[in-house]
């Protein structure tokens, strides 16, 4: 699969489409209606999840299966602090984010030096253990019943939740963007492309990989905390492998290893999910088949397709969806 492009193009002209999309999103609460505004909030949660998972998998080549688990850690930490100690969610969410970062530091330090396969195995195990703990400690977590938590800020309002989620998603995307253009981002791609060469040039391979894992875990914790306080009911669905699969499918279908891919994939699948909801439980099966098709035949995802199409039409590269 040598077709993956890891280019992060620069230049001011590519900022325009993003600003246009942001302006459009800012107007959503005015005209979108309660139902679709809810979908937009969920969509932004998935944008954060898929983009931060892609930072790890698409740019350093490490597949974590604990991304949903870290979102669950963020949600349950903040939720339990709010319920037991009355801590305000806006303070609880950063704490949850910190706990998610600490756990990813521990897991990463433990297994990343052994290579990528170990990270995948250990994160899958972590995710399963978190499920067991949540189900067994039902006095604290309310198990599968779900933990009732306060709304994120003030009285319940989808517009408030939407703007907070949008701010967080923009912040996450800006940080990822900045990281990818920094020296650290260069080292991320160095350890993905050729670990031996990177090592020989003095790149501290293990430390770079752990750093990427911690950053991505913290972002998942932030997304999960906000999502939990938007839903006001935190259930084991957040740290589940089902949600993990959705995040992975969004990144794969959108286009792994590109900046814009996971954003496109997350919004596309969230909107698609609304339309095929009538097919009930079939929709996970359909998503998984589509994701398999992309992973097997179109590893560049939708963004890869769009880039190729634009190139065929002779459009200037780096414009529009090609970023």
């Amino acid at each position: 699969m040598t077709t993956r492009h890891l280019k992060v193009s620069s230049g001011r002209q590519e900022l325009l489409p993003w600003l246009a999309v942001l302006a459009l999103f800012l107007t959503f609460p005015a005209w979108l209606g309660e139902y679709w505004l809810g979908s937009a909030i969920v969509g932004l949660f998935y944008v954060m999840m898929a983009a931060s998972w892609n930072l790890l998998a698409g740019f350093t080549g490490q597949v974590s299966f604990a991304h949903a688990a870290f979102a669950g850690v963020g949600a349950y930490t903040s939720g339990i602090l709010a319920v037991k100690l009355g801590l305000h969610p806006l303070l609880g969410v950063p704490v949850g984010m910190g706990i998610a970062a600490l756990l990813s530091l521990g897991l990463g330090a433990l297994c990343i030096r052994m290579g990528g396969i170990y990270l995948s195995l250990t994160t899958l195990a972590f995710s399963e253990i978190l499920r067991l703990v949540i189900n067994n400690e039902y006095q604290v977590t309310r198990g599968t019943m779900g933990l009732k938590v306060p709304f994120i800020l003030g009285d319940y309002s989808k517009a408030t939740a939407f703007y907070l989620m949008l701010a967080a998603a923009v912040a996450v995307l800006l940080i990822i963007r900045w990281l990818l253009k920094s020296d650290l981002g260069l080292m991320f791609r160095a350890v993905q492309n050729d670990e031996v060469a990177a090592d020989s040039l003095g790149v501290p391979v293990t430390r770079i990989r752990v750093t990427a894992f911690v950053i991505s875990g913290a972002m998942a914790g932030l997304a999960g905390g906000l999502y939990g306080h938007y839903l006001t009911l935190i259930t084991p669905h957040i740290p589940s492998l089902d949600l993990m699969f959705l995040v992975l499918a969004m990144a794969v279908i959108g286009g792994m290893g590109t900046f814009v891919g996971p954003v496109v994939g997350a919004l596309f699948l969230e909107v698609l999910a609304e339309y095929i909801r009538v097919w009930g439980e079939f929709h996970v099966l359909i998503f998984s088949l589509v994701a398999l098709g992309f992973a097997r035949f179109l590893p560049g995802g939708i963004v890869g397709l769009a880039t190729a199409w634009l190139a065929r039409r002779g459009a200037p590269a780096g414009k529009g969806g090609a970023a």
Binding site: A57, V63, G116, I117, S288, L292, A295, R296
Partner: peptide, 9 residues
Amino acid sequence: MYSLIITFI
């Protein structure tokens, strides 16, 4: 990486 992703899917 892709074999992990494909078998997981």
